[in-house]
Simulated assay, not measured.
Amino acid sequence: MAERPVKPWVKMALELGPVAAFFAGYLRLRDQVFTIGGTEYDGFIVVTAAFIPLMVACTGVLWALTGRLSRMQVATVVLVVVFGGMSVWLNDERFFKMKPTIIYALFAGVLGLGLMRGQSYLASLMGEMLPLRPEGWMILTRRLALFFAGLAVANEAVWRLMSTDAWVNFKTFGLTAALFGFFMAQGGLLRRYGMERDGDA
């Protein structure tokens, strides 16, 4: 089913809004401790508990507006529910901190599996939005698989070796900036292997 058009700012708000809300909530509650049902929860766990339904709700609204979700979006929200839920249930922030590692390792593994089979799963996912020749897709897929693997390693290093404040900043700004920078750096590849769309002059 074709994706229904939606204003770019609405889509961006639904995709990035929960992350921004998590960051703002963490800054406000990070030094507080809440007693719920006789158990003490720090601010990180409380904000995580609020982030999970917000992420699910925003993803649901995005699906209702556009009529479709990418596999990456579905995988992300499922892992948020699973690992965020484990952190809240077990009162252990480590599970939620592992989530980006699992997400990026999963993406890298799926793309790598496709490359081993001589296919670009990225082309299947983004082919309509980004017309490239087959060799361009293979190069971009290889680069993105390595990039995702690098992000998985980086997340593990940050959450294991640095403070929670540092990890929250890394997750909110570092990962977003890295993704933006990666795709900006692919300009040369897109120019070299890009194809004109049907109807283009």
Rank of each mutant, 00 (worst) to 15 (best):
E3Y: 07
R4Q: 13
R4T: 02
W9F: 14
W9C: 02
K11A: 10
A13D: 00
A13S: 15
A13C: 03
E15D: 15
E15Q: 10
E15A: 12
L16T: 08
G17L: 00
P18V: 00
A20W: 10
F22W: 02
F23M: 09
F23D: 05
G25T: 03
G25W: 04
Y26E: 07
R28S: 05
R28M: 11
R30V: 00
D31S: 13
F34M: 06
F34K: 03
T35K: 04
T35V: 11
I36K: 01
D42P: 05
G43T: 03
F44G: 01
I45F: 09
V47A: 10
A49K: 04
A49S: 02
A49L: 00
I52W: 04
I52S: 03
P53Y: 05
M55D: 00
M55G: 14
M55R: 14
V56F: 05
V56H: 01
A57E: 04
C58D: 01
G60W: 02
V61A: 08
V61E: 02
V61P: 01
L62T: 02
L65I: 09
T66S: 13
G67C: 08
M72W: 08
V74K: 12
A75I: 13
T76C: 01
T76N: 13
L79S: 10
V82F: 01
F83R: 06
G84H: 09
G85C: 02
M86C: 09
S87F: 08
S87D: 07
L90V: 01
N91I: 10
D92W: 10
R94A: 14
F96Y: 15
K97W: 00
K97F: 08
M98D: 06
P100S: 09
P100M: 11
I102M: 10
I103K: 01
Y104D: 13
A105E: 01
A105Y: 11
L106V: 07
A108L: 02
L111Y: 12
G112Q: 07
L115K: 08
S120K: 11
Y121E: 04
S124D: 15
M126L: 15
E128A: 15
M129S: 15
L130I: 14
L130G: 04
L130Q: 12
P131D: 12
P131Q: 11
L132R: 09
R133T: 14
P134M: 11
P134L: 11
E135I: 07
E135R: 14
G136W: 06
W137A: 03
W137N: 10
L140C: 11
R142T: 15
R143G: 14
R143P: 10
A145F: 09
F148H: 15
L151F: 06
A152V: 03
A154Y: 07
N155E: 09
E156A: 12
A157G: 00
W159N: 07
W159T: 07
L161D: 01
S163T: 15
V168D: 02
N169C: 07
F170A: 05
G174A: 09
T176A: 14
T176N: 11
A177F: 12
A177R: 05
A178G: 09
A178Y: 10
F180G: 07
G181P: 03
F182A: 07
F183A: 06
M184R: 12
Q186G: 08
G188K: 11
G188S: 12
L189S: 08
R191L: 08
M195H: 00
M195D: 04
E196H: 07
E196C: 00
R197W: 04
D198M: 05
G199L: 06
G199M: 08
A201I: 01
